[in-house]
Structures are given as C-alpha cells and as structure tokens.
Design a protein around this nucleic acid. Structure first.
Length: 350
DNA sequence: AATACGGGGAC
DNA sequence: GTCCCAGTATT
C-alpha cells in the first residue's frame, strides 16, 4: 500500500478512492498508471475530466473519477494546491466520505479517526454481535463508539491498517479463520456460534433488465466512426458510447425505431444490412444490460444539428473512456483496422 | 432510510 | 449462479 512508503496525502487519497468497493488486485495497476500520469494536484487540475475518466476505464463507479477531478480543482483553487489536513475539510471534498476522510487523516497525518470499511464492519459486527447491519446508522454508531477510544491507545495509521487487514485476512466474509483468531475469547459471535450469521445483511433487491442497441457506423473512406458522450443521471455518466437506442423489452428493436436513428446517418435500412451483429450481456449490481451491437457501413453524413454526435477516427477511439463492454468492442475494431470490414464489404458485394 | 452507482474475483 | 469488495452521493 502507498502509505507503507509515503505520507503524501495525494497518493493516499488516490489509492483510497480507487480501493472503494474495489479489491487491491483489481485496482492496483490502475493506481500505478494513474499516479504516473497524474503525480499531483496540479497535473489533475490541468487536465480534462474526460482524460481522468479514460484512466478510470474498466474500474467502475465512475463518479469516483469525476469527483477526483472536482476535488482536485477545489484543492487547487480554494486551498491553493495544499492538500487539506483536517478531518472536516477532507470530508467536505466531493467523493470523500467518512471512511476516506478517516483513512487520509490517519495515514497521512496520524490523526486518530478510526476507519469503518467493510472489513472493519464485519469484524466488529461479529465481535460485538451487532444486531443491525453494521453499515446502517444504528450499527455504525455502536461500532464507532467502540473504535473511537480504542484508536487513542495506539498509533492511528497502524491501528487502522491492522484492523482492516484483520478483517480481510482473518475475519473473512465466509469461513472466517477463527482458529487463528486471538480475539475468540472476547468475540460474542464466536461464543454464541453466530459467526456465520453475522454481520446481518439487507435483503437483496431484484435487478432490472435493460436493452441497449448500439450502432457502430463505420466510414471506410476515412476510417472513422461516431460516438457521443453520455449525459444525465444514468449509469456511465460522461463516458463515451456509440449511437444508442434503448428498448423497453427483449428482442429485436422495432424497425421504426432503428430507422429513425439510421436515417440521421443517411442509412436506408432496406438497402443496407449490418455487417456484423453482436450480442453480449453485462451484469451490474443493480441491473443487467443486454447489448445488441450492430456495425453498419456509413458514408460519413450526419443529419443532426444538436452536435451531440462526434465523428472520430477509429485509430483515435481508444483515447476516449468507454464502458468496459464497449471498450472491448473498440479493441476489436482497432484490431480489424478497417481491413476486415473492407474485406467483409467486398465479400458481400461478391 | 432507500437507492443507485461498475466491475471482477472468490466460492 | 451469489456475495461483496479499504464507500459515496442522491433522493
């Protein structure tokens, strides 16, 4: 972990944001690349949000990237580039909640704020036999009241690191290593044989299905295609995507709907068939996305005055941040490098 | 208090 | 398939 070798609050901040709801194994390479490109507040302040999102591509929870950019701008202007060094000012920054504020306060400044992440919550929910979900307000209070005096007894950074590691390595979600645990004599869950029933979890909700029909329009003459940036409050905010029609139900898109979009790009669906149609699904926490991706040949015309669509070279696509499923499509497109599509086009003519 | 927000790895 | 991860913001 960065804080094992640095007290730089900037690096600690970035690593903590990346590791929110993200395992070290998944986030570590992102951290290294991110720090290399953005070594400090100034470098983040000088770039565009879209580049930060590109570096976040594939990590998920993209509000983290958007908020990192916001917070960096705030630190640059409001705090003149000096990283905030109190719990309250840290907490006031976008993307920094109670956990991250405590983590930075402890690791960078040795301030005694106990961290309460998933690992700590699980350990203390068992140790204290907390009856409510440990991250709900009531359970959270019980745990925080227990930790607040405890962290005063020792070095905050060591305390926080140790208690999180303990939860991750010993007091694991399933099959905790109680035989290696030095706290069994004080652990209520262990005494009551409730270790596999705690912590209490909330009932899970059903996830919704969504049907995304993407149109990849390929202009072989210029080796270019069309993308747009996602707006609104929906998933993947500010990431890029291909022209999209979302359908309410499973199955093929009604011809009338696709014709409306295709006509914007001067494509007659009766004359032009997709070169390729790809189906994929992607499981997210709250929804299952069904992708239907079609590649069409395109003459380069856009009959749309909103300016929401932008034409880009295929060779330039990878400079934009896409949702992971579309990022994989981009990789495929680049590998085709136009030649496969042209080949396919010739085969169709013959 | 409930809900949305991504993606992947462990089981 | 299910669970859940060094959580936060919004409603």
């Amino acid at each position: 972990m960065p804080w094992l070798e640095t007290k730089d609050p900037y690096k600690i901040w970035i690593s903590e944001i990346i590791l929110q709801q993200t395992r070290v194994a998944q986030g570590w390479s992102y951290y290294e690349r991110f720090i290399e490109r953005f070594p400090d507040i100034t470098s983040l302040h000088k770039t565009q949000e879209s580049e930060v999102l590109k570096y976040w591509e594939g990590l998920g929870y993209y509000s983290r990237a958007r908020n990192i950019k916001k917070a960096a701008d705030q630190i640059f202007t409001t705090y003149h580039g000096k990283f905030p060094d109190t719990y309250e000012t840290l907490l006031s920054l976008p993307g920094i909640g109670p956990y991250t504020a405590s983590a930075i306060a402890g690791f960078a400044y040795d301030l005694p704020y106990p961290v309460l992440d998933g690992n700590v919550a699980r350990f203390l929910a068992r140790f204290l036999a907390v009856e409510s979900p440990p991250l709900e307000p009531s359970g959270k209070k019980i745990i925080t009241d227990f930790l607040a005096p405890a962290i005063q007894e020792t070095k905050p950074s060591a305390f926080n690191q140790a208690i999180m590691n303990f939860g991750a390595l010993i007091c694991k979600p399933a099959k905790p290593n109680c035989h290696e645990c030095p706290f069994t004599s004080g652990c209520k869950a262990y005494q009551l044989r409730l270790t596999d029933q705690l912590p209490v979890t909330l009932p899970k909700k059903e996830k919704s299905n969504r049907y995304f029909h993407y149109f990849i329009l390929y202009n072989p003459k210029t080796d270019s295609t069309v993308i747009q940036q996602r707006s609104g409050k929906d998933i993947w905010q500010h990431l890029y995507e291909f022209p999209l029609i979302e359908n309410e139900s499973e199955g093929p898109l009604p011809k009338q709907k696709s014709d409306v979009l295709l006509s914007v790009f001067d494509i007659d669906s009766d004359a032009e068939q997709p070169l390729l149609a790809i189906h994929k699904t992607q499981n997210l926490t709250h929804q299952k996305i069904h992708f239907n991706i079609q590649i069409f040949l395109w003459n380069g015309l856009i009959k749309d005055k909103t300016g929401l669509y932008q034409t880009v070279k295929v060779s330039n696509l990878s400079s934009f941040g896409f949702p992971v499923t579309l990022a994989n499509m981009v990789t495929q497109l680049e590998n085709m490098n136009g030649s496969t599509i042209k080949e396919k086009q010739q085969n169709d003519v013959m």
